[in-house]
Simulated scan of single mutants.
Amino acid sequence: MNMKRRGQIGPRFSVYLLGLLVMSLGIDLVILADLGASPWDVLHVGLYYQFGLSIGSWSIIVGIAVLIVSALISKEMPKAGAYLNMILVGLFIDMYMLLPFMDTPSGMTGKLLMFSAGILINCYGMGLYISAQLGAGPRDSLMIALTSKTGWKVGRVRAVMEILVLIVGWQLGGPVFWGTVFISLCIGPLVGKALPQCQKLTDLFLASLRKQPFIDKENRGVNP
């Protein structure tokens, strides 16, 4: 196993980075569709409405707070991937928001298409970054810590977390609509479908890179 993974941090990070880029684009499309956002994004947008800064900045600030709480509960520091995830996703969210063509469609058909595309892109982005196996984000770190502390099942912990976050975000004026309910109910199963596909692609990509040096040797007439 060690031989297989040697020298593959670079390729894994490339997949990880691509996944975060894709996921962040999906997040922005869902927010801009104006049909309701995920509970955490309802909170980020609500904070943006009330206190300024940017949605990406609040994603990072909330992520820092979540990591602190997670560290206090678990009594251990989160892995480096959680910090990297937090910072990059916040930066990518703001980067996409600055693009001139990123705007809310005027008609319902356009909004539905943007919302649907955002959900699909978000799920496959999550599948890609998870398939790189370089660490979870801050929200998942907190979920794991709470699951270990309370003894509750993961689904129950996640549901309680998201309900509380949604209530706070809604009180701050975040975008709650039927799309929020759809995301809350369907994002888990959709990511469950996307992840195995992304994992298979990532494994094939990494396997092809492992074989490349041997192919080069054969081309030069050198036995592997």
Score class of each variant (00 low, 15 high):
38 S>R: 03
112 L>I: 13
76 E>Q: 15
51 F>L: 15
75 K>A: 11
126 M>L: 09
47 L>N: 03
98 L>N: 08
47 L>Q: 04
65 A>V: 13
108 M>Q: 01
58 W>T: 08
27 I>W: 02
91 L>S: 05
86 M>K: 00
69 V>R: 06
26 G>Q: 10
91 L>H: 05
86 M>P: 00
18 L>P: 00
112 L>T: 01
57 S>R: 01
52 G>F: 10
39 P>K: 07
92 F>D: 01
77 M>G: 03
113 L>E: 01
116 S>H: 06
121 I>A: 06
15 V>S: 03
24 S>L: 06
59 S>R: 03
81 G>Q: 08
49 Y>C: 00
74 S>R: 15
128 L>P: 00
70 S>P: 11
20 L>K: 03
123 C>Y: 06
80 A>R: 12
68 I>G: 02
29 L>R: 05
36 G>I: 09
47 L>F: 13
22 V>M: 02
32 L>Q: 12
82 A>N: 04
92 F>I: 09
44 H>Y: 12
62 V>A: 10
7 G>L: 11
119 I>S: 04
110 G>S: 05
76 E>G: 13
106 S>K: 02
127 G>V: 00
73 I>P: 12
21 L>N: 02
127 G>D: 00
15 V>D: 02
108 M>F: 07
128 L>A: 09
114 M>E: 07
46 G>Q: 10
86 M>C: 03
102 M>Y: 08
88 L>Q: 00
103 D>G: 05
127 G>M: 00
70 S>C: 13
106 S>R: 01
94 D>H: 04
128 L>I: 00
80 A>D: 04
46 G>N: 11
8 Q>C: 10
82 A>R: 06
103 D>S: 13
27 I>V: 15
8 Q>D: 15
35 L>S: 05
94 D>K: 01
112 L>D: 01
16 Y>F: 14
49 Y>H: 12
66 V>G: 08
13 F>L: 14
54 S>A: 09
34 D>Y: 01
12 R>T: 13
64 I>C: 11
100 P>R: 10
122 N>R: 02
10 G>Y: 02
49 Y>I: 05
80 A>Q: 10
34 D>E: 13
115 F>V: 08
12 R>A: 14
30 V>F: 10
59 S>P: 00
62 V>G: 04
66 V>T: 15
33 A>K: 08
9 I>M: 15
95 M>S: 14
45 V>I: 14
117 A>V: 05
104 T>D: 06
52 G>T: 10
76 E>S: 15
116 S>Y: 03
113 L>M: 13
62 V>H: 02
